[in-house]
Amino acid sequence: MRNEKRIAMTDNQQALHDSRLKATKDNPWPYDEVKVVPSRYYGRWLSALVIAALIALVADSMITNENFGWATVGKYLFSPTILSGLLTTSWLTLVIMLLAIVLGVLLAVMRLSSNPLLAGFSRSWIWFFRGTPVLVQLIFWYNLAALYPTVNIAIPGVFSLWHGSMNDLITPWTAAILGLGLNESAYMAEIIRAGIASVDEGQQEAARALGMRKGQYLKRVTLPQAVPFIIPPTGNQVIGMLKTTSLVSVISLSDLLYSAQAIYSRTYENIPLLIVTCIWYLVATTLLSAVQTRIEKHYSKGRGR
């Protein structure tokens, strides 16, 4: 069999050599007649030209239209009032997301628990906070004193830890953190639950076979493997929360939007101040997106694409 294969290969090589010898200028090598023609993407170029034309028209309109007030934008872009509002927005986003993530982990674990009471409580929490508008929840917390004018934190018959007015306890800051944090915890609970569910059940069985308790394999086995699946949607939630904090302006908390409103309520330059607000939101979301990308790359090391 090996000799026959060698003879066949030799015959093929001889035929190829003979065909090359017969090739002349009038009778070129057959494969030289094949011409490679690049593909024409007329639709791609046409759409690119249309988009470029639209961008040029919009840019020209924004530059030449004096109503945009670019001089006013430059004047207030680094205004102390605006920067103070930006700091408030950033701080709110950080505190709210930390609260939401902690509560989300607890709710996700409770949702996956075999205890029907814990699972039912988690489902009810998620159902309520996802089913009602976040703005309504925010206003509700801000007006909680209408239901409970005073609050008494105490052990009945033993001692009183704190007693005072609900208005002293529920400030605009407290209402913002509770209203947005509790609402966001419901969404984070579902994200974390989905991440935990993405880990193969065999991992849990192996951990139990090694004698690990439920809390141990959740901390050492399940969560480390679920984190790469949890980070991308969590990053999106952080960016979304940065913009959602603009709702706190309705309870007179001096975030970025409220600070801009405070300025243009005096100067009546609405559009330039709103442009300033948009610029800072874009800067903040761009930075958060870059941080999210770095974190995703860190946790995706060693994983196949």
Rank of each mutant, 00 (worst) to 15 (best):
L86Q: 10
M62F: 04
L57N: 05
L54C: 09
A48F: 04
N67T: 08
L57C: 03
A71K: 00
L77N: 00
F68Q: 01
F78I: 09
L87A: 14
N65G: 02
S47F: 13
L77P: 03
T64S: 14
I51E: 00
V73Q: 10
L87V: 14
M62V: 07
L83Q: 03
I63E: 00
A56M: 06
L77S: 04
W70D: 00
G74T: 06
S79C: 10
G69H: 04
P80H: 04
W70F: 07
S79L: 14
Y76N: 06
L54Y: 12
G74S: 11
T72N: 02
I55F: 15
L87Y: 11
S79D: 15
L77C: 09
T72C: 05
G74W: 04
L87M: 15
G69C: 03
T81S: 01
T88W: 02
V50L: 14
A52W: 12
A52T: 01
F78C: 03
F68C: 04
T64Q: 12
A48N: 05
F78Y: 04
F68M: 06
G69P: 00
I55E: 08
V50I: 14
A56C: 00
I63Q: 06
T88L: 09
S61G: 07
N65V: 02
N67P: 00
L77F: 15
G85V: 13
A53Y: 10
G74M: 14
F78W: 14
A59C: 02
I55R: 03
F68S: 10
T64E: 06
V50R: 04
A71T: 03
L49H: 07
S79F: 11
L86G: 06
L49S: 08
L54F: 09
I82S: 14
T72V: 09
D60K: 14
V73I: 07
N67I: 00
T81N: 02
S84W: 08
S84Q: 11
A48Q: 05
V50Y: 06
M62Y: 01
A59K: 03
L77Q: 00
K75P: 12
E66W: 02
A52R: 11
L49G: 07
I55D: 09
S47K: 14
V73L: 09
L86D: 03
D60Q: 10
F68I: 03
M62D: 08
A53G: 13
L86I: 13
L57S: 03
L87Q: 12
Y76R: 05
A53W: 03
I63L: 10
A52M: 12
S84R: 11
A56L: 07
T88I: 09
L54S: 05
F68L: 06
A48S: 08
A48Y: 00
I51V: 12
T64G: 07
L87W: 15
M62G: 02
L54P: 06
L57W: 12
M62A: 11
N65P: 07
F78A: 12
N67W: 11
P80F: 14
K75D: 15
L83F: 09
K75A: 05
G85S: 13
S47E: 04
I55V: 12
V73A: 06
E66Q: 10
G85C: 08
A52H: 06
A59H: 00
A56G: 08
D60A: 02
S61A: 13
N65T: 12
S84G: 07
K75G: 07
